[in-house]
């Protein structure tokens, strides 16, 4: 693909030859691509980094689900990724950047409320565990 896209994908899904497509006639390999935006819920951005960025220096931006974000931050820090849209929060930030609030910004209200609830539950759970341990020590138990 780095040398000639047409050798790997000679036609699109519907059988049209690549050269007859508006984009296909202008883009022959990675050198013709200014930016790749990988919208992914799997490891696809890793493949883009390994095969397109590392070998051909193509700029990659990844729109990720939140669970993937911490695995991709090192690539962002090392400039192997040009940018990251980090889950729902990233989607909301992008909407704010465009001054076009939508589903992402709307979802962040619920997201923030649930995060606050989870934080309260974590604190409550730890307080309860601490009290249990304290009462056990106070009762003379050592197990």
């Amino acid at each position: 693909m780095g040398e000639n896209l047409g050798e790997v994908f000679s036609q699109d899904y519907e059988g049209h030859p690549l050269a007859t497509l508006p984009l296909g006639s202008r883009i022959h390999n990675y050198r013709d691509i200014a930016l790749v935006i990988s919208v992914a819920d799997g490891s696809m951005p890793t493949y883009w980094v390994e095969y397109a960025q590392a070998r051909y220096d193509v700029k990659i931006v990844a729109a990720l689900t939140a669970v993937m974000v911490t695995s991709y931050i090192p690539y962002l820090e090392s400039h192997q990724l040009t940018g990251i849209v980090a889950g729902l929060r990233g989607a909301a930030e992008y909407e704010q950047l465009l001054s076009a609030p939508g589903a992402g910004s709307r979802g962040m209200d619920a997201q923030s409320a649930i995060h606050a609830l989870i934080a309260v539950l974590i604190v409550a759970g730890n307080v309860q565990a601490w009290r249990k341990r304290r009462s056990r020590i106070g009762g003379g138990g050592n197990q």
């Binding site: 889950g87 929060r89 619920a110």
Partner: peptide, 23 residues
């Protein structure tokens, strides 16, 4: 710290899925 951040992002991811389904 890494595992904590990953856990928080995992919660965010699952909640986002729930929000999408509820919407």
């Amino acid at each position: 710290v890494f595992f904590g951040a990953t856990f928080a992002y995992t919660v965010m991811s699952r909640v986002a899925l729930l929000i999408g389904r509820l919407e």
